[in-house]
């Protein structure tokens, strides 16, 4: 579960992916604490906040290891978003890099901070390259036994919070 969220984070950033070198040790250490990724289905709720404007949405989320991630938004509009089309090729490349534990590739994109207190933990990803920094401040993942929340802070699109609820599956 932790790992699939990592996929989300990396995928998010790779819209503007430009690579850089970074701390290899962090990615490897963190990855060691992430369980082996399995196919998973969850409910998700999403809140996009831009100044006074708040957009709520939600639906189903799936991770299929050989196909990538699928967001099936059910409200307020119905749409399915996948990241394996040519348009989202970069996203898919990085999803693959993360899900298959390609630390070398991952380290090029982020500075990673991982903190753990009892069962709760937090992972913060900060982009390394300027071209990414121009659009993304940071990504924060909060988790317990699994991933509970992803918080994406962007430069132009405000903040996005995605909450996952896998117990209700």
């Amino acid at each position: 579960m932790k790992k699939f969220l990592l996929i989300l984070l990396v995928s998010f950033i790779c819209v503007n992916s430009v690579m850089a070198f970074g701390s290899r040790k962090n990615a490897r250490e963190i990855a060691e604490q992430i369980p082996e990724l399995k196919n998973i289905s969850c409910k998700f709720t999403q809140k996009k906040i831009q100044e006074d404007l708040v957009l709520n949405s939600g639906g189903n989320f799936k991770f299929i290891s050989d196909k990538g991630v699928v967001f099936e938004t059910l409200y307020p509009i119905k749409m399915i978003t996948t990241y394996n089309s040519p348009r989202n090729k970069h996203i898919n490349d990085i999803i693959l890099a993360v899900s298959k534990k390609d630390y070398t590739y991952l380290d090029k994109n982020f500075d990673l901070d991982f903190t753990k207190l009892d069962e709760r933990w937090q992972l913060v990803l900060n982009p390394k390259k300027d071209v990414i920094k121009q659009h993304l401040h940071s990504v924060v993942i909060d988790g317990n036994s699994g991933i509970d929340r992803i918080y994406i802070d962007t430069v132009n699109s405000g903040q996005t919070e995605i909450l996952f609820d896998c117990e209700k599956e």
């Binding site: 999403q46 996009k48 957009l55 978003t81 989202n88 659009h135 993304l136 996005t160």
Partner: peptide, 27 residues
């Protein structure tokens, strides 16, 4: 509403996300 998508410009600069759409298609 694209969970992993975001705008390359501020909404007032590109309200219809036409620029983000153009760049994404170059990808």
């Amino acid at each position: 509403y694209n969970p992993l998508g975001f705008s390359l410009l501020k909404p007032e600069e590109d309200p219809f996300l036409l620029f983000t759409d153009y760049i994404a298609n170059l990808g």
